[in-house]
């Protein structure tokens, strides 16, 4: 099944890590508030500017660091797809399990200016700058992973198959 997204580009540089995407203060925040802390250390105010369907272009080592649910909060911010020069493997996992498609594309930083309109085809790997009419070939996402994205991520699958309860456990703070 083809998986194509089109939207406005936000550019981030090299070495964007999980502590920037999901700061340690997010561990103690209610689930619905966690995404509001995304990029608060390096780009305060961004969560109020990003709109549903926007796309993220990253540099080298995007998503390096920990197992924090980076894909989940980026998706909750409104991001519909991620393409980076190089993508940390754990970040890729965390994007896929949260139904946020992500892939690598060498040279992608130079393909876009912030605010350009991009088209990411995760099935073929083609990355297009719609605004400036130019494109690059990235690394397509494996069909098995796109199936997980299409299913809405891992959690709905586990719920549907009867492995876990349908609502999250919430540890009381009082």
């Amino acid at each position: 099944m083809p998986h194509v997204v089109e939207g406005r580009v936000w550019k981030f540089g090299d070495n964007i890590n999980t502590d920037l995407i999901y700061p340690n203060t997010a561990f103690r925040a209610p689930e619905a508030q966690q995404y509001k802390l995304t990029f608060s250390a390096n780009r305060p105010g961004w969560v109020d500017q990003v709109r549903p369907g926007d796309l993220l272009v990253g540099g080298l080592n995007f998503g390096m660091g920990s197992g924090r649910p980076s894909g989940k909060v980026l998706r909750e911010c409104g991001i519909a797809g991620v393409v980076a020069e190089t993508l940390n493997g754990l970040c890729l996992r965390n994007c896929v399990v949260s139904a946020l498609p992500a892939m690598q594309c060498k040279g992608v930083s130079g393909l876009f200016e912030e605010g350009d309109i991009a088209r990411f085809d995760f099935s073929s790997g083609l990355v297009t700058n719609v605004t400036r009419k130019r494109s690059l070939q990235g690394e397509a996402v494996a069909p098995l992973l796109l199936d997980i994205v299409a299913a809405g991520g891992v959690l709905p699958m586990l719920v549907r198959e009867g492995y876990v309860e349908a609502t999250a456990y919430v540890a009381s703070a009082r």
């Binding site: 103690r28 649910p69 989940k72 876990v164 349908a166 919430v170 540890a171």
Partner: peptide
């Protein structure tokens, strides 16, 4: 387990 959204009780 203590982080909201991080734990869905397993049934098996």
């Amino acid at each position: 387990i203590s982080t909201d959204g991080g734990w869905y009780r397993p049934k098996k």
